[in-house]
Design a protein around this nucleic acid. Structure first.
Length: 622
RNA sequence: AGGGGUAUGGUGUAACGGUAGCACGACUGACUCUGACUCAGUUAGUCUAGGUUCGAAUCCUAGUACCCCUACCA
């Protein structure tokens, strides 16, 4: 009964049947035509003989990964997994001026964490591990190929400055010019060697490909292959003072790794002729030829109310609009993880929005919907009161404690139950009481009755106020016949009476104080910066609110275990918890923040996302 | 201006000359010890104008709108 479009190795919810996107269709076609050949026997029984599919994720280590990269990682890793292929993580570290070791480490952590959602290992372990690579490891080979191109008359050293090149760039219909284009190979070779040996200052000359100065595709107007950069490199140290440009380097990197489908974003579409030109030129007169991957472009993710450009994210960090790359409001993988996102929810989201070449603005609500869907399935429930008001149960003896059964996760019976203490004085949510209730308000009001979750029916007898008229406490009574939360059964076997509303509560004597950080979206505009040209103008100034809350004692250990109650486990290398944590009933999903400390005990929770709140919508209507 | 792309309900995404489907949202209702979840239903779409065809989202022609390209960034 399996659907025709199901993933071949379906074993997670995201693997359910869905239409094949254009890249998957292309891979199917390649497999049918035998375009890339098959994996050799040495690859083992699970892969040998199957059509080759080898993908990669090639980040530049100049910032933290964000949810847009997550789409690419899920796409590439997912393709490798679905086709019994391989996936490489490769750092495209060709520009030491902007790249740092710190970013390499964070990226490795984030990719591994996301890959964990596939239950199939990662880039360095498991059945689809292609390996970890650095473009900088290929610098020698790239240089050799460059010399080859010079010898073939396909590249030359140009002594124009950047400004001069720009001035001579030409226009559509007006060709560019370079006075050095017809320099004999021998001369270029000599200069290239001098460049490499550090005999010339930054910016004094470049190696350029000799393609077509008149092309309407400006990428083909003799693009720069190497520039001089006297910069220390995080990987090659001071071995090089010339560094390859993206277009020259990237195809060679893919070639060396035997990548079949080199997937990138749309803006590289008109670089593809260049990508192909370089490999073809290397292969001219060469036998056997080097591997020639296929570049495929897709539309990158653009979520509403979010910015994703690394330059702008860096600005948020540097100018302290957020606390760091991992601020829970950031769209970075690290920030989302700290916020409480699970890798699985991000994967499901990426799967959900599809892969196309159409530019589109994705409703950020889609991401939140994926998150809620997953968290609802896996998080243990707990009770916390964010804005407390005291309830005194007048007919409950002082000093008496009842231990009631609390269902840990109604969506997962296997999670079982635990005990919660009930006493005479309780905290309830201020929002759950109104002196003059509007229509359809079925929470607590004077003379009204609600159910305390898993405890007793509670009736409000009287409101106590201070001199200024502020409510200080509610005097209430419980119905002792409703222990556990239900009235005793009537003749028909059903509860003899019911209440409409159920509210959450915490025993005041047992309550633990906690700091709870309530996050909202970082920007108040759907497309930040669109209005004024400066995204800073659209910052939501109420994106973080901190409250002092009371939580039930069961949550106290959360600080020590850092959300260890969550099923998903933790990331590699001491990564923060995989997010998630708890559902605070009727409020939302929360997770412990790393700022928490077991000793002295300090509880800090982040609100990951609220529950859907149809009452808020109803109340707003009135 | 020249080159490269893309147009399907509010938002995403299917269809590959043959019944415009799915998801999210919104709205109704049911259920409910979370105003959550779940379930049922409703809403709403092929950029425009011509043409080919028995039949067009799909093919042709001409437009329109939006995105990308003139770094020694990736």
């Amino acid at each position: 009964m399996s659907a025709p479009n199901a993933h071949p190795d379906a074993n997670t919810p995201a693997d359910a049947a869905r239409p094949r996107n254009f890249i998957e269709q292309l891979i199917d076609a390649d497999a049918a035509s035998g375009r890339w050949g098959v994996w050799p026997k040495s690859e083992g029984p699970d892969r040998a003989g199957k059509p080759r599919v080898h993908t990669r994720f090639p980040p530049e280590p100049n910032g933290y990964l964000h949810v847009g990269h997550a789409k690419s990682i899920c796409l590439n890793f997912g393709l490798a997994r679905a086709n019994a292929g391989k996936f490489n993580l490769r750092f495209d570290d060709t520009n030491p001026a902007k790249e740092e070791r710190e970013y390499v480490e964070s990226i490795k952590r984030d990719v591994a964490w996301l890959a964990s959602a596939f239950n199939a290992g990662s880039f360095d372990s498991g059945p689809h591990a292609g390996g970890l690579f650095f473009a900088s490891d290929y610098f020698d080979k790239m240089y050799d190929h460059a010399v080859d191109l010079v010898n073939k008359g396909k590249a030359y050293v140009c002594q124009l400055t950047a400004d001069e090149v720009s001035a001579r760039r030409g226009k559509p219909g007006v060709p560019a010019t370079s006075p050095h284009r017809d320099r004999p190979p021998s001369e270029s070779l000599k200069l290239l060697d001098e460049m490499r040996r550090g005999l010339h200052p930054d910016g004094s000359m470049t190696l350029r490909a000799r393609i077509d100065l008149a092309s309407n595709n400006f990428n083909l107007r003799d693009p720069v292959m190497y520039r001089i950069l006297h910069q220390h490199h995080h990987n090659t140290a001071d071995k090089w003072c010339i560094y390859p440009m993206y277009d020259w380097a990237h195809g060679i990197e893919d070639s060396l790794e035997g990548i079949t489908h080199s997937i990138c974003t749309l803006e590289f579409e008109d670089h593809r002729p260049l990508y192909d030109w370089f490999i073809k030129s290397i292969n001219e007169g060469r036998s056997p030829p080097v591997w020639h991957s296929q570049q495929i472009e897709f539309a990158k993710l653009a979520p509403s109310y979010t910015i994703l450009s690394k330059r702008n994210l860096l600005r948020l960090v540097q100018e302290k609009f957020v606390t760091g790359w991992d601020d829970p409001r950031m769209p970075t993988i690290a920030g989302m993880r700290r916020r409480g996102y699970t890798a699985e929810s991000i994967r499901n989201f990426c799967d959900d929005i599809g892969v196309t070449k159409t530019d589109s603005l994705i409703d950020i609500g889609r991401l939140e919907a994926s998150l809620r869907e997953h968290l609802n399935r896996v998080t243990p429930r707990a009770m916390a009161v964010l804005d407390p008001i005291k309830v005194v149960v007048e007919n409950w003896p002082e000093g008496k404690t009842d231990q009631l059964d609390f269902v840990i996760n109604p969506e997962d019976p296997a999670a079982g139950t635990r005990k919660v203490p009930f006493t005479r004085e309780l905290w309830i949510e201020r929002d759950d009481f109104m002196e003059v209730p509007p229509k359809k308000f079925f929470r607590l009001f004077p003379g009204g009755e609600v159910r305390l979750r898993w405890a007793y029916f509670l009736k409000c007898e009287r409101v106590v106020k201070d001199a200024d008229g502020n409510i200080t406490e509610l005097r209430c009574t419980i119905d002792p016949d409703t222990r556990g939360g239900d009235a005793p059964p009537g003749p028909d076997g059903k509860p003899s009476r019911k209440v409409k509303g159920t509210i959450h509560w915490v025993s005041a004597a047992h309550a633990m104080p906690a700091e709870v950080r309530l996050f909202d979206r970082l920007f108040s505009a759907e497309e930040p910066g669109k209005r004024t040209g400066n995204f800073i103008d659209d910052l939501n100034h109420d994106s973080k609110r901190t409250v002092r809350a009371f939580v039930e004692p069961w949550l106290a250990n959360a600080a020590a275990t850092r959300g260890g109650a969550l099923v998903s486990g933790t990331g590699p290398d001491g990564a923060p918890p995989t997010g998630g944590g708890f559902q605070f009933e009727r409020l939302g999903y929360f997770c412990t923040d790393p700022d928490s400390a077991p000793d002295p005990r300090r509880l800090v929770f982040n609100r990951t996302v609220t529950l859907k709140d149809t009452w808020a919508r109803e109340a707003a209507k009135a």
